[in-house]
């Protein structure tokens, strides 16, 4: 093989790498906070969530070529980060994290207050239901949730109704609002 002929593909490689790096940067710019807040809704321990995301992103960077080819790279990263979080949590000997104190829950009026109510609800759920609720915030469908969490679709349905029931139970005394659908 002639060395001269190696140039164009190299060039091609170079260009491709630059492109990938670009797309990765854009992807992270867009999604980093989103994934982090998803993780924070899982474990309430910012350090653990950051560590899990850090690990997951290193893998993402390494495999970006394959990952970016996915239909939804965000789902891939989110799934990986979730698994990392679970295994980190297990390595912590499954020590349960401090549950949040039930705050004075009035009708939330801002996104921040809604987040607080949401966090409290999350803290009252087992870990898989917690993940389902966190993905409900993102607006994912049952199938999408099932795929990201490695669950069956029926399970996601069951968990969703469980989550709704639990939410009603927690805030039943919240007075005048209508019952959720």
């Amino acid at each position: 093989m002639m060395p001269a002929q190696a140039f164009p593909p190299d060039d091609e490689n170079e260009r491709r790498r630059a492109e990938l790096q670009d797309s990765l940067a854009r992807f992270l710019e867009e999604n980093y906070s989103k994934i982090l807040s998803f993780l924070l809704r899982q474990c309430f321990d910012p350090h653990l969530a950051q560590d899990a995301l850090h690990e997951a992103l290193i893998v993402t960077m390494d495999k970006w070529e394959a990952v970016s080819a996915c239909d939804k790279p965000l789902y891939w990263v989110r799934r990986t980060a979730w698994h990392k979080l679970l295994s980190l949590h297990e390595r912590q000997n499954g020590r349960s994290l401090v549950p949040l104190e039930p705050d004075e829950v009035a009708e939330p009026t801002s996104a921040y207050e809604a987040e607080m109510v949401l966090r409290y609800t999350l803290s009252q759920l087992p870990f898989r239901q917690r993940a389902v609720l966190a993905l409900m915030v993102e607006g994912d469908t049952d199938e999408q949730i099932a795929m990201q969490l490695g669950l069956a679709v029926t399970t996601v349905c069951t968990y969703k109704s469980e989550v709704r029931r639990k939410y009603r139970e927690l805030f039943r005394s919240g007075a005048d609002e209508g019952t959720p659908a």
């Binding site: 009708e107 996104a111 949401l118 915030v137």
Partner: peptide, 16 residues
């Protein structure tokens, strides 16, 4: 406020 409304409200939270 039901759960769906809550979720919609929480989703409005844009990163600072």
């Amino acid at each position: 406020m039901n759960l769906d409304e809550l979720l919609a409200l929480a989703a409005q939270d844009a990163p600072t």
